[in-house]
């Protein structure tokens, strides 16, 4: 992919995330981690290549179908993107409102989730009055409130101390156990190593794969078999810049 007329930021990146998997995405600043996530949450179209999301070819999907694909992806943005004029509670409720749920159906879930991320006392706080770490957790709560099939988190531990980073990581691991596919972009080499999760590494616009080496926190369990997942047979598949597909074509 590329921005405007700039040189390609990502080229010939090809990978597939198996449903229920957990990956880190690493790379130097400016390597294109955020750009790769943008492709997956459909904020950007690839200038060439193919993306398949939950078994749907994104290029050929009709514009009316994209919102429904987006609702299955939870995103923690690098810069949070909280709505500053809405309370923490309203921010978290947003994806549910968008999906058309009734307030009475999700009121309690939202409060519970906010408590779970440690914001139980700050339900009605406005984002500008929250600390960096609180904002981060609020953004995470918003990303997961809709029980997404895929969670993308861009530097979700960028603003917090080591202790909080570990707590957030544990939160993601727990979500993953519940069946969510997780992809986390991170600078934090130490955190990545300690997690022992497989790593996708971006360098010079290209992607390499490392299997995770468990160190400090050996992971004992495989994700439990996904319950209540109607699309258990579907694949989350990202297949970028497959050279055989379009050659040098660009959008």
């Amino acid at each position: 992919m590329r921005y405007g007329r700039s040189p390609e930021v990502l080229k010939d990146v090809a990978f597939t995330l198996a449903p229920g998997s957990f990956h880190f995405l690493t790379g130097a600043s400016g390597a294109g981690k955020s750009s790769l996530l943008k492709l997956i949450y459909l904020a950007h179209r690839p200038s060439r290549g193919r993306i398949e999301l939950f078994g749907h070819d994104v290029e050929s999907a009709s514009r009316n179908d994209l919102p429904f694909l987006r609702r299955r992806v939870g995103v923690v943005f690098q810069e949070f993107r909280l709505l500053d004029h809405l309370s923490a509670f309203d921010n978290v409720a947003l994806p549910l409102r968008i999906a058309g749920a009734k307030p009475d159906e999700y009121r309690d879930d939202v409060a519970e989730l906010l408590t779970w991320v440690g914001l139980g006392q700050r339900l009605w706080a406005m984002p500008p009055t929250l600390s960096g770490g609180e904002k981060q957790r609020l953004a995470i709560a918003r990303a997961v409130v809709n029980r997404p099939d895929l969670l993308l988190a861009d530097e979700p531990t960028g603003n917090v101390d080591h202790e909080m980073a570990l707590r957030i990581l544990r939160l993601f691991v727990e979500l993953n156990r519940l069946g969510t596919t997780v992809l986390i972009a991170s600078h934090d080499q130490d955190l990545v190593r300690r997690s022992g999760m497989p790593v996708l590494h971006l360098y010079d616009g290209k992607l390499t794969r490392h299997s995770g080496e468990a160190r400090a926190e050996p992971r004992s369990t495989r994700p439990a078999p996904r319950d209540e997942t109607p699309q258990a047979d579907e694949q989350s598949e990202f297949d970028l810049g497959d050279e055989n597909d379009f050659g040098e074509d660009e959008a």
């Binding site: 949450y41 459909l42 904020a43 009316n64 919102p67 429904f68 694909l69 987006r70 609702r71 995103v75 993107r81 709505l83 947003l94 994806p95 968008i98 999906a99």
Partner: peptide, 16 residues
């Protein structure tokens, strides 16, 4: 634009 973008990326349809 920020608000509209967040709505859009959270899966809001144009109609919404």
């Amino acid at each position: 634009k920020d608000v509209v973008e967040v709505l859009h990326l959270s899966g809001a349809r144009d109609e919404f």
